[in-house]
Simulated scan of single mutants.
Amino acid sequence: MRIAHRTTALLLALAAAVGATVTGASAEPGDGKDVPDVAVIGTGGTISGVSTNRVSFQDYRSGQLAISKMVDELRPEVDGLADVTTEQFGNKGSSAYTIADYRRLTASVDAALKKNDAVVVTTGTDTMEEFAYWLDLTVRSDKPVVLTGSMRPWTVIGTDAPANLYNAIKLAASRKTTCYGTVVMLNDQIQAAREVRKTNALRLDTFDSGPTGELGVVDQDNIRLHRAPARVQKCGKSSWNTPFDLDGIAAAADGPLPKVEIAYSYQDAGGEAVTAFANAGADGIVTAGTGAGGISPAMSAARTEAVKKGVLFASTTRTGSGAVYGSSATTGVIGAEDLSPQKARLLLLLSLAATEDEKQVREWFSTLGTAQFVTR
Results as ranks from 00 to 15, higher is better:
residue 178 T to I: 00
residue 190 I to W: 06
residue 129 E to F: 12
residue 108 S to K: 15
residue 130 E to R: 07
residue 130 E to M: 07
residue 129 E to W: 05
residue 124 G to Q: 10
residue 107 A to S: 12
residue 155 T to P: 09
residue 189 Q to D: 11
residue 169 I to T: 00
residue 159 T to Q: 10
residue 176 K to D: 03
residue 133 Y to M: 03
residue 117 D to G: 12
residue 118 A to L: 09
residue 153 P to R: 11
residue 135 L to E: 03
residue 136 D to C: 05
residue 139 V to A: 03
residue 121 V to F: 05
residue 163 A to S: 14
residue 152 R to E: 08
residue 109 V to R: 13
residue 175 R to L: 03
residue 140 R to T: 11
residue 186 L to Q: 04
residue 115 K to C: 01
residue 179 C to H: 15
residue 119 V to H: 14
residue 184 V to Q: 03
residue 190 I to F: 07
residue 123 T to Y: 02
residue 162 P to V: 13
residue 190 I to Q: 03
residue 165 L to V: 08
residue 183 V to C: 05
residue 125 T to W: 12
residue 181 G to T: 11
residue 112 A to D: 01
residue 185 M to H: 14
residue 151 M to A: 09
residue 189 Q to T: 15
residue 127 T to W: 06
residue 129 E to N: 07
residue 175 R to G: 13
residue 157 I to T: 13
residue 173 A to Y: 07
residue 114 K to L: 12
residue 120 V to R: 02
residue 126 D to M: 11
residue 187 N to I: 02
residue 138 T to M: 08
residue 135 L to K: 03
residue 183 V to R: 05
residue 160 D to K: 11
residue 187 N to K: 06
residue 189 Q to S: 15
residue 160 D to W: 12
residue 133 Y to E: 00
residue 119 V to P: 13
residue 183 V to S: 03
residue 170 K to W: 10
residue 151 M to V: 06
residue 109 V to P: 03
residue 168 A to R: 10
residue 141 S to E: 03
residue 176 K to F: 00
residue 148 T to F: 04
residue 149 G to T: 08
residue 141 S to Y: 07
residue 163 A to F: 12
residue 161 A to R: 09
residue 116 N to K: 11
residue 145 V to N: 01
residue 169 I to Y: 02
residue 118 A to W: 07
residue 133 Y to D: 02
residue 184 V to N: 00
residue 173 A to S: 15
residue 183 V to A: 00
residue 108 S to A: 15
residue 111 A to W: 10
residue 175 R to D: 00
residue 148 T to Q: 02
residue 154 W to I: 08
residue 132 A to P: 08
residue 169 I to L: 02
residue 147 L to T: 02
residue 158 G to R: 15
